[in-house]
Structures are given as structure tokens and as C-alpha cells.
């Protein structure tokens, strides 16, 4: 029997991970996946706030049956290394909706790693990821989309934006597309920037103090990730969790 090994940052999918945090997990932890299976035509939604104090590893494997719809919305604001990894297998005409926000400071790495297999024709997916960081924190998004041979009419969209609030923070975005069908749409975008100083001054000129202006702008920035969440209460809960992390910054 071969001994289980922990992943290392030499492996592509773990390259931006916090190497010392990985040491704190048992090798078995890297073998564990939460398996979720949606029957054909089934719709299921799940919202999560990852805000633990120690290193966290969340690995979810979702299979969406033909015509089904899976929705996942996550705020990743853990106080230590927090990785949310999602593997999705889409059957014919299935849809996967993902909204993710990494937000936080400290010397902490927070990341999303998604792998979407468009295995059959007519499946669609939309991923919107926003990263807001300060201190020396890092926010990562590794998004892989695989379109199988014959998975025609695939429509996959992936959009990442990072907002760096202070010098020293960073984000990494790595879109990866592997397409073996010729009649597909795969859109991806990645951009990293800072707060709009002109907008901040405009807000100040109307009497809004700097911290409140920042919160308004960050709220607007991350809102995109939850636009597709058709539940105002859940939307508010996720938004509050994210802004709470912003408010807690020292």
C-alpha cells in the first residue's frame, strides 16, 4: 500500500496555496470530498459562509443530471488558510451557477478552485468571483473549464475581479480552458485593480466618511457575485458576512 501524500505547491492546482497550512491537514483530508448528486431536472441551491479560525479545506463534487441546475454561493472570509474546491460534472442541458467572494486581510490565503466538466451538449455555466484583500492577504481563483468532445452548444462564462485595498495584498487568477468541441461559447475575464479614488473623493465631497465610502464601494464591487442569487434574505446574509469581514479590519 502506498502512503498518502499531501499536495505541495509544486502541483499546478495548489501552486498559490499556503504551503505551511497544508502541513496542518492529515494526508487523508486531501482524499475527502463531499459528494452531491442532482437528479435529472433537479434544482438545488447552497449558500455558505466560510469564516472559521483555523485552516479549512472544503471540497465538493457535484454531478448535475440532464436539465438540472446547481447553484453555489460562497463567502470565503476565514481567519486562516481557507480553500473551497468545487468539481462539477454537467450532463446534457444542465446548468451550474457559482458566485464566490474571497475577502479579508492578515497574512492569509483564501482561494476558490473550480473545475467544470461540460461533459454533454447544451450545458451552461456561469461563475462570478470577486476578491477583496488588504494587509498581506492573498485571494486566488483557479478556474478550469473542460468541454468534452461532442459537448456542442456549451455556454460557459467565468468572470474574476480583484480589488486590492492596500499595498502588500495580492490576488492570483488563473482561467484554464480545455475545449474539444467546435460549437461552443466560453467567455472568461480577469481584472485586478484598486478602489476608484475619484469615486471616493466624490463620496467624501457629499459628506460620506472614508470608511463608509469604502464599504459602499466594496459592497457594489462584490454584489456582482450574488446577482444571480434569487433570494433576497440569503443575498443579504452573504453580503453582511462579507462586509462584516471588511468592518473587522484593523
Amino acid at each position: 500500500m502506498t502512503e498518502l501524500q499531501r499536495p505541495t505547491t509544486r502541483q499546478e492546482e495548489w501552486r498559490y496555496a499556503d504551503a505551511s497550512a497544508l502541513e496542518q491537514f492529515t494526508p487523508e483530508a486531501f482524499q475527502q470530498w463531499k459528494e452531491v448528486e442532482l437528479a435529472p431536472g433537479e434544482t438545488r441551491r447552497h449558500c455558505m459562509v466560510l469564516s472559521g479560525t483555523g485552516p479549512e479545506l472544503h471540497r465538493i463534487r457535484i454531478t448535475v443530471g440532464a436539465g438540472g441546475r446547481a447553484e453555489l454561493f460562497v463567502v470565503n472570509c476565514g481567519a486562516d488558510y481557507t480553500r473551497c474546491e468545487v468539481d462539477v460534472h454537467l450532463m446534457q442541458g444542465a446548468h451550474f451557477q457559482f458566485g464566490g467572494v474571497t475577502i479579508g486581510g492578515g497574512d492569509v490565503t483564501r482561494e476558490f478552485v473550480t473545475r467544470l466538466a461540460h461533459a454533454e451538449p447544451d450545458a451552461t455555466s456561469e461563475q462570478t468571483i470577486r476578491a477583496v484583500h488588504w494587509g498581506t492577504a492573498t485571494g486566488n481563483f483557479l478556474g478550469r473549464i473542460e468541454v468534452a468532445r461532442g459537448a456542442q452548444k456549451t455556454d460557459a462564462a467565468q468572470d474574476f475581479k480583484g480589488l486590492i485595498l492596500e499595498r502588500g495584498a495580492s490576488t492570483n487568477a488563473k482561467p484554464e480552458l480545455e475545449i474539444f468541441a467546435d460549437d461552443v461559447k466560453c467567455a472568461h475575464g480577469a481584472a485586478i485593480g484598486q478602489l476608484d479614488e475619484t469615486a471616493r473623493f466624490y463620496m467624501a465631497a457629499r459628506g460620506i466618511p472614508p470608511e463608509a465610502a469604502k464599504a459602499l464601494l466594496v459592497r457594489a464591487f462584490i454584489a456582482d457575485a450574488f446577482v444571480a442569487l434569487d433570494d433576497a434574505d440569503e443575498q443579504e446574509r452573504l453580503m453582511d458576512a462579507a462586509l462584516q469581514a471588511l468592518g473587522d479590519r484593523s
Binding site: A199, G207, L217
Partner: peptide
């Protein structure tokens, strides 16, 4: 922001666009 609270208003030559923040939200906050 303290100048604004003291009663000064600056009308901009080029008013700034703020995507994601509604006028109502912005002005009520202000």
C-alpha cells in the same frame, strides 16, 4: 467629508459615475 458636513457643497464639472451604488442609497448615506 467634514467640509461637506460643515455646509460646503462642491458641484462637479464632471460628475462621477459609481456603478453598483444607487443614487438613493448614496444620497441617503451622505
Amino acid at each position: 467629508h467634514e467640509r461637506a458636513a460643515a455646509g460646503l457643497f462642491l458641484g462637479f464639472q464632471y460628475p462621477v459615475e459609481i456603478p453598483g451604488v444607487s443614487n438613493v442609497q448614496f444620497l441617503r448615506e451622505a
